[in-house]
Design a protein around this nucleic acid. Structure first.
Lengths: 209, 209
DNA sequence: AAAAATAGGGGTGACAACACCCCTATTTTT
DNA sequence: AAAAATAGGGGTGTTGTCACCCCTATTTTT
């Protein structure tokens, strides 16, 4: 049974991170703590395999390097056997080095931290021992979220809007089919279904349909 | 058709905010932009009813008040007819006042911003014209997320772990029944089902079972 | 002692999502 | 001219969630 703890004060972000971890393991428990006190209490009561830390916690100055280090240090000391991943909004490679020295196995910037990268990061850590993903800004097309679409429909629309010029729809169908281990024809069906729904509701479809 | 735009550079947070907005409207489109440039482009191309802004965007100093104001100001000027809500990790009541002066209708701190509050905030705005929710730390018990539970099962477990001492389970069943407009017996069934699943897997259940 | 709460099972119909199958036009590539 | 991609429909079985129904013990309150 894989056990993880996410220490992050922003509720929506904490829940999102917990969800990402859950998506990486078929059978697991993920706890979430808002404060260092609560986190410390849980780490003392139970063993964890993975601890995710945002150093900017209530009661500490998120811009003061001493405070940030104190938070990470305290958590690592309280759970020496766990894998520690630091997730922060204000990331720098110098801070990554600093946390690595005190025992962190991963360092991630929040900007650009997409759904699905957590699995990659854990993979990195288990093979290389360390994983760093600094913030990068690469968005050229906005996210589109339509109510009334099923997850699969939303997903294929997502992939279709992001498709590069010159790329055939068929290639996208194959890409999605590959990623989800389904049939390309099925992916095509999702796209057509989604498109029909949006048209019926009188939506102005984004470029790339 | 309700149209919203979320301007936030942290992907997971942006997606979480978009989800919160979607949950507040039965029929809507929600766009997400990572940068001010992308946001501006969308605001110029289309009309929006609601724009959510995190002032700490790529290319700006999130600690410099002038930069933060510039971001908010630019977006409000580009979409004068929309309702604007500022969401920030480093919130203060003085900044709330400042953004209110330039036309923001809402100001929310990320810490403590729970799922479901967005609907309340929009309600506040439509009745009072303004809504402010500063960060507050109130967590006494960690979040518990177990894989393999259905959403309803996870929800009742959530509520049960948060129940105050002396509160009967029956009261929790009624509370959940009330919130979801279902039967209290049904809520009880979810709890028993969830508990049985966790026991079968050999979990150490948190206090309060 | 009576009433309520708790622990622990059983089953059911409705509905949506999923993944797949089939079909016919029209347009674009090659 | 042939092949591929696109647009637009139809249907079907499986699975899981949801919301509800029923039942019996045991423990705790009142």
């Amino acid at each position: 049974m894989f056990r993880a703890l996410v220490v992050e004060d922003q509720n929506l972000m904490r829940l999102a991170l917990m969800e990402q971890i859950q998506a990486s393991f078929s059978d697991c428990v993920v706890l979430g703590a808002e404060t260092l006190e609560l986190a410390t209490r849980e780490l003392q009561n139970d063993d964890f395999d993975l601890v995710v830390i945002d150093p900017g916690l209530p009661g500490f100055d998120p811009t003061a390097q001493a405070d940030r280090l104190a938070v990470v240090d305290k958590i690592i000391e309280t759970s020496p056997s766990a894998i520690h991943v630091v997730v922060t909004g204000s990331d720098s490679s110098s801070e990554a080095d600093e946390f690595r020295r005190v025992g962190a196995a991963g360092y991630l910037g929040k900007t650009g931290l997409e759904p699905g990268v957590f699995a990659d990061v854990l993979e990195d850590i288990s093979t290389n021992g360390f994983s760093m993903r600094l913030s990068r800004v690469a968005m050229k097309i906005p996210d589109y979220r339509y109510s009334g679409l099923t997850p699969r429909e939303q997903e294929i629309i997502d992939m279709m809007t992001r498709r590069e010029r010159g790329m055939k729809r068929t290639q996208i169908y194959e890409l999605m089919a590959d990623r989800l281990a389904i049939d390309a024809g099925t992916a095509e069906r999702y796209y057509k279904q989604a498109r029909a729904k949006l048209m019926r509701r009188g939506h102005t479809l984004p470029k790339g349909l």
